[in-house]
């Protein structure tokens, strides 16, 4: 079913079930976001994609990644209010991930070059977070795309963190690296060294398998998982993998 509404006054059309951010981007409207990826369920954690939506005469600021399109709504993707609030969100995030390129760059676009919320270095235990902004892409990718569910959000409130059960190496992690690939702040640390695949944040190290031709492939758990999920021949990767 087609849904009609407007973005910044421009009439647009979308399929029912689509999110506002996807439609806006399709029509060329730029909306920043850090926790959204079309491959996984929208979550609405980072709050950077704030927009204004008027529905039934009522205007409200809301994130648009988890806002399903509705007939007749009016979306505004940028104005002074939106800009100011996005800037504050980015200033909060910059305090968490001052070294992450994506955050630094986006914050700068909103005129934020340093965070007034950051405490002097060493005065708060930032190590646990280590540049993580708790966007949850790793958790969702691991659960929904890889279908392993090695990771979860643990605890709550300001103690919230992401990782394996018991703050330990998740034993079912196949070290596929999808989490590291999805991470907007590059805080997971993906490395292949001395025949090992290493995911630093999860403290996971698995030996790499090689093709018959001696090319490094991937950890055995990952290959086995992919073979099972995609119903591939057992020696699919040994023979050199997809061609």
């Amino acid at each position: 079913m087609t849904v009609k509404f407007t973005i910044n006054g421009v009439p647009v059309e979308a399929e029912q079930g689509e999110s506002v951010i996807e439609v806006a981007r399709r029509y060329g409207f730029e909306i920043p976001s850090l926790c959204h990826h079309h491959a996984v369920t929208p979550y609405g954690a980072c709050r950077v994609c704030l927009v204004e939506i008027t529905k039934g005469g009522r205007k409200k600021m809301t994130t648009c990644c988890n806002y399903e399109v509705q007939e007749g709504i009016e979306v505004i993707t940028d104005n002074e209010d939106i800009h100011r609030n996005r800037a504050t969100v980015l200033e909060l995030l910059l305090a968490e991930a001052p070294k992450a390129d994506a955050i630094v760059k986006l914050a700068a676009e909103y005129g934020v070059t340093h965070s007034r919320y950051a405490l002097p270095e060493g005065s708060e235990p930032t190590e646990e977070r280590d540049g993580c902004i708790l966007c949850g892409l790793c958790v969702r990718v691991c659960e929904e795309v890889v279908e392993v569910s090695a990771l979860s959000f643990n605890a709550r409130g300001d103690k919230r963190n992401v990782g394996g059960p018991y703050m330990d190496t998740p034993q079912n992690c196949i070290a596929c690296g999808a989490c590291a690939w999805a991470c907007p702040t590059n805080c997971i640390g993906f490395e292949e060294k001395d025949g090992m695949r290493i995911l630093k944040k999860w403290n996971r190290e698995l030996p790499l398998e090689y093709t018959e031709a001696g090319q490094p492939l991937a950890p055995r758990f990952q290959l086995r998982h992919f073979i099972e999920k995609a119903n591939l021949p057992k020696d699919f990767y040994k023979k050199g993998g997809p061609r």
Partner: peptide, 18 residues
């Protein structure tokens, strides 16, 4: 509230903490 927040939204989790 900083402890009772579920911790999902940046604005709530980090905002209340700050």
């Amino acid at each position: 509230l900083k402890f009772e927040s579920c911790g999902k939204c940046t604005t709530c989790r980090e905002g209340i903490r700050r």
